[in-house]
């Protein structure tokens, strides 16, 4: 699936988008998997209360299932308007 990062999450991880081959069952499993890779991921995901997640471009929760999902995005709370 494609994993996207925005705002300071993108800056901390150092890329806007990557292709991830994963068998993670939920968003939380994917977070654990990414965090185990490198410090920059662990740092970006260290406080999940500061993050939001979208699954296939819909705001979602960290316990959301990933079966059949094509795109997951992580970002800070939005500041539009």
């Amino acid at each position: 699936m494609d994993v996207l990062y925005f705002a300071w999450v993108r800056e901390r991880i150092g890329l806007p988008k990557e292709r991830v081959d994963t068998s993670a069952a939920t968003v939380m499993d994917l977070v654990r998997e990414l965090s185990a890779r490198e410090d920059r991921y662990a740092l970006a995901f260290s406080d999940l209360s500061a993050l939001r997640v979208a699954v296939d471009q819909e705001l979602s929760d960290f316990d959301a299932p990933l079966g059949g999902v094509r795109e997951v995005a992580f970002f800070p709370p939005m500041t539009g308007g």
Binding site: A7, A54, F75, P76, P77, M78, T79, G80, G81
Partner: peptide, 20 residues
């Protein structure tokens, strides 16, 4: 304000910061 995926970053002579 809080449900559309926009993020603002402010740049000043002191540096740059994401709006919380």
């Amino acid at each position: 304000k809080s449900r559309a995926p926009f993020w603002k970053k402010e740049f000043t002579a002191d540096g740059a910061a994401w709006v919380a």
